[in-house]
Amino acid sequence: MIDAVNLTKKFGDVTAVDGLTFHVAEGEAFGFLGPNGAGKTTTVRMLCCLIAKTGGEARIAGYDTGNEADSLEIRRMIGFMPENVGLYGELGARQNLDFYARLYDRTEQQRMESIERLLRLLGLWEKKDQPVGTFSKGMKQKVAIARALVHDPEILFLDEPTANLDPEAAKTVRDFILDLKKEKKTIFLNTHNLDEAQKLCDRIGIIRTHLLRTGTPEELKEALWGSKTVIQLEEVNDRIVAAVKHHTSGKVVVEGHRLVIDVINVESENPGLVGAVFAAGGRIQFVQGLNPTLEDVYLKTVREETP
């Protein structure tokens, strides 16, 4: 549904996006995870035909973003929620949405049905005629999401949809995105919120100008972290450490009174590791697997790529 091959954008001598290649399948929620300035927004703006690429290719449902005629078709089939909502503050929520819906040649009945459905889903129907300028930041964010969906697009681009929102408003927005996933919308999400990416995305790309890694959250954890066993002891000494290192080819790290050991197969390796500790006189308090978070994976990836 979304394809990029060596997609590049330069602003003068500055390379904002450097040779991105990726594919997003129909009905998939794909997330770009990266720090501010990583190129996330620039990438989305190229995919939405808002700025021209410098090099490479990008296609949406087979249409070329660099072709003027194709770009019109792309704009008809996508919805875009920018980081800055850009609503008309003097107009009500319903009027804002109707203005944008008219740009997509929707009939009056289609517009009214779509607007009411979206505002009800987002809990804004009772405030439909209040000026948007009086809304809270979270309410404006909801209207912006409704605007991106008012013409029932096949593909939705969301740029930092919960940025600067309070926890309650952010949860409402995330829950709504989860509902969109159930409708099999293709969703491209920009975020630097690790928890958000984990909850909403089927696959994640970690970006820092160029694409560092892609995969499901679990694939990224496995590829970058692997399996680890933690053995907590009453006391760690050189004899115990030597015994464990003799028993395994994996890396052994001493962290206070615990050993963190790289393993390939937890079920087959842990009994031998425990036996080696006992034989060396160690007194074990507990044994557990060490499960990395997406934050661990993200920080490891970004730090490895830091010059």
Rank of each mutant, 00 (worst) to 15 (best):
E83W: 04
V44Q: 04
R76S: 09
E73C: 04
I78H: 03
K9C: 02
A93K: 02
K137A: 08
D18H: 03
M112N: 13
D202L: 11
L124T: 02
Q130E: 13
T172C: 04
R111W: 05
R258C: 11
D159Y: 01
K181M: 12
R76K: 15
I2V: 15
A223F: 11
S268P: 03
Q109A: 15
F157E: 01
L290M: 13
G250N: 08
E218P: 03
A279T: 11
D70R: 07
K182S: 12
H23R: 14
F22L: 15
T293F: 04
T301I: 15
D238R: 14
I231L: 14
E305K: 11
F80E: 01
A197T: 10
G27D: 11
E295D: 15
F135L: 01
K199W: 02
H23I: 04
R45L: 02
P167W: 07
T54H: 03
L294D: 11
K185F: 12
K10F: 01
F188M: 13
I206V: 15
N265P: 06
A170Y: 09
P161T: 09
A163I: 09
V173G: 09
E234A: 11
P307E: 14
V24I: 15
G226V: 10
G205E: 13
L91M: 13
E28G: 09
R117S: 14
G62N: 06
A146N: 04
I231W: 13
P131A: 04
T214A: 10
A144Q: 00
Q198F: 14
G205M: 13
G215T: 07
L91T: 03
G37N: 08
Q232N: 05
I206E: 10
V244N: 08
K300V: 04
L91N: 03
V236T: 09
H192G: 12
L233H: 12
T8G: 07
E168V: 14
V254C: 10
I155S: 03
K40I: 08
V277L: 05
G56R: 07
D195A: 14
L124W: 07
D105V: 01
K221F: 11
Q198A: 15
N164V: 06
L72F: 09
V274M: 07
G66K: 06
N6M: 01
P167H: 05
P131Q: 10
T191V: 13
E267N: 13
K228D: 08
L97P: 03
K142R: 15
L50W: 04
N67W: 04
L47V: 10
I207H: 09
Q130F: 02
G12P: 01
Q110C: 05
V254N: 12
